[in-house]
Amino acid sequence: MLFTIITILLALGLFAGLAFHRFWTTREEARSTIIYVEIFKKYLAWLALRTIQSARKASPKDWWDYVKALPLWRLPDLEKWLFVGFYGSFAYLAASGFFFAIFVPRGLYGFPLVGHVMAGGLFAACLAVIVIFKGRNFISVPKPVNLSLALLDPRKMGITAARVKIAAFWLFVLAGFLLTLSALVPMLPLLRTAGQKFMFELHRYTALASALAATVYVDLEAMGARRP
C-alpha cells in the first residue's frame, strides 16, 4: 500500500514538474508576471488546455505515426534492434511490474511473471551493452551559467536540462544495476527471509526510480528534439 501511495504521488509530482518545466521554458505568458500565484494560475490554465488538446489529438494512428517517426528506426540494424530490445523490455517490465504491484493484491504471478523475468534478462543485457557503448556520451557536463540561488532560477543554480538528462541517465543506469542485482541475488542461496524482503523492496523502489528517471530523460529528450 505504501509503495502504491509513493508511486502515485511521485508520478503525479514528476508529471507536474515536467509540465511546469515545459510551461516555464516554452510559454511566453510564464514570463509575463513575477507574482507566483499568477504564474501558477497561468500554468494551471495552460495545463488544462494542453491536456484537453492532447486528449483530443491522441489516437492509435497518431501514436503509431509518432512511433514510426522515431529516429530509432533510422539507426543501423544492430543498434536498432539493440534499442528495440531495450525499450521494449523496459516498457513491458514497467507495465507489468507497476500494474500488478498497484492493482493486483497478489502481486505479479503466472505468465506475466515469466514474461517479466525474461524481459528482465533482455533489459539487463541491453543496458550493459548500451552503457558500454553509449555511456561516454553522458560524461561531459556543460558548464553552468552561474552558480547562485538568485530568483530560484534552476538554470542559475546550475541545473540545466542537459545536466538533468545526464543525471537521469546515470540514475537510470544505477537503478538498472540495482534492479539486476535485486533480481539475481534472491535467486542465489545467500539471503535469509529478511534479506529476501529487503531485496524485494529494493527491486520495487529501484524500479520506481528507474521509471521516473526514464520519464525525465525521455521528456527532456523529446522537448530538446522539438526545438529548432
Binding site: 539487463a124 543485457a125 543496458l127 550493459a128 552503457v131 558500454i132 539486476t180 542485482l181 539475481l184
Partner: peptide
C-alpha cells in the same frame, strides 16, 4: 544476469 550486473 551476474555478468550484466558486473558490467553495469
Amino acid at each position: 544476469l551476474a555478468v550484466c550486473a558486473f558490467v553495469i
